[in-house]
Design a protein around this nucleic acid. Structure first.
Lengths: 228, 228
DNA sequence: GCTTTTTTCCATCATTTGATGGAGACCTTG
DNA sequence: CAAGGTCTCCATCAAATGATGGAAAAAAGC
């Protein structure tokens, strides 16, 4: 409990913390320019002046949101890494897909904010960065696409980005995609997981030497953590 | 040459057409709320009043941009469909990836606008829709993930969305991802294509060398286009 | 209980932004 | 050229938006 941000993270009922939580949601839904300080203040049930008192100007608040998201994402990735440790590559992938999908469904503002940061420019210069670069390398190592200590190849980074983005897309695009696919929420969630596994498992599980053995041995023993 | 939009599309040097072209770019970069009519007017070298004279209010202009993008995308998808007709699934996939990647690199506003429409809400209600739903079905049929005439399954639609979005992401996220991966533009483009093929070809192609392995793995499971 | 500090809100300001009216330029047609 | 229409721009407005000062209220310290 040192910085104001950490303090707010740990006192979930305070006005300041509630404001930050609402700011995450609304910045995630409407993007930086699509969000007004009044929207956040009114949604949080706070006077707009109180918002400025706690968080400084709009840019400062946005920066706080990004840092907050960064921290949540780091913790979640670490949890997943622990969980999959020691499993085979295919198992690691399937479990990571299930875990990240469930996590992001509970916190859609995380993927919203990440994606909007990738794709939408800001009129003023960017403020503080997501920690994506180091996340990507860590995931590549955890997935054993790269050696544990050495540098991570460009190919491995691209593959990790492809996986992460595929998950983010299905989460943040849920409303849009669900209507395109024409299913209800429950079925959509199941489809997200099964589609991701359908796509990524063959790519990563089929070219190492053990592929043949795995494919024939694993018959009928697909992921036990999958809800599909 | 009937509607104003079509007219503008075909007279590329007119003030009106130039304004639309600039609007595509800027709406694509900054999103709806991040874009001001003054940004578009000044970038197009036009008085802001002239912009309103030609295109009505901001929402009307945005709608025109979306329709314009829709038409471009439809044409491009049709070109690709013709090109890949008669090839094997793996070939179709690889060619489509190459073609769409090159096309979108030349017109990044297309994928920018599509992605921002997926992921960013607008304060006012949405105006007119992308034609994504029908595009998705057509692609699924062209790729022969679905029967040519029948309905397209939810699984096939999700797979098509995954492919399209993966391409869009690498194009629109280029600036961000290129710095993460640490390569120059040329190498990035090559990596996009090779990574996309690395990921998607194994999932869909049962014909290449891996065919027997896949059959072995799939024995006793559902259809080859649906994962459990 | 009184002082000090922290927090909240009302009123208000300055700028940005969407939008328009009207004067003039330009262009076409006869 | 004259008349009518089309296009462009200057000046300007009204609303939305980011931001602040200062009074009141609440909380903390003693």
């Amino acid at each position: 409990m040192r910085t104001p941000l950490e303090k707010a993270r740990h006192s979930p009922d305070s006005t300041k913390a509630r404001t930050l939580r609402v700011a995450r949601e609304i910045f995630g839904q409407y993007g930086f320019h699509g969000t007004t300080t009044r929207m956040i203040a009114s949604e949080a049930g706070v006077d707009i002046s109180t918002l400025y008192y706690h968080w400084g100007d709009k840019t400062d608040l946005y920066e706080a949101v990004v840092l907050d998201i960064n921290e949540d994402l780091r913790q979640q990735l670490w949890r997943v890494e622990e969980l999959v440790r020691g499993r085979t590559l295919a198992e690691r992938l399937e479990m990571a897909i299930d875990q990240m999908t469930d996590y992001l469904l509970d916190h859609p503002e995380v993927s919203n904010l990440v994606l909007l940061r990738y794709f939408a420019k800001t009129r003023s210069e960017p403020i503080c960065d997501l920690r994506v670069p180091s996340f990507v390398s860590n995931i590549a190592r955890a997935m054993k696409l790269a050696e544990r200590k050495g540098p991570v190849s460009a190919e491995a980074r691209m593959q990790v980005l492809a996986i992460m983005n595929a998950i983010y897309n299905f989460i943040s695009g849920q409303e849009f995609f669900q209507s395109i696919v024409g299913v209800d929420r429950e079925r959509y969630v199941a489809l997200v997981k099964s589609t991701l596994k359908f796509i990524f498992v063959p790519a990563f599980a089929s070219d190492p030497p053990a592929a043949e053995l795995r494919r024939c041995a694993d018959r009928g023993t697909k992921s036990s953590t999958s809800s599909a």
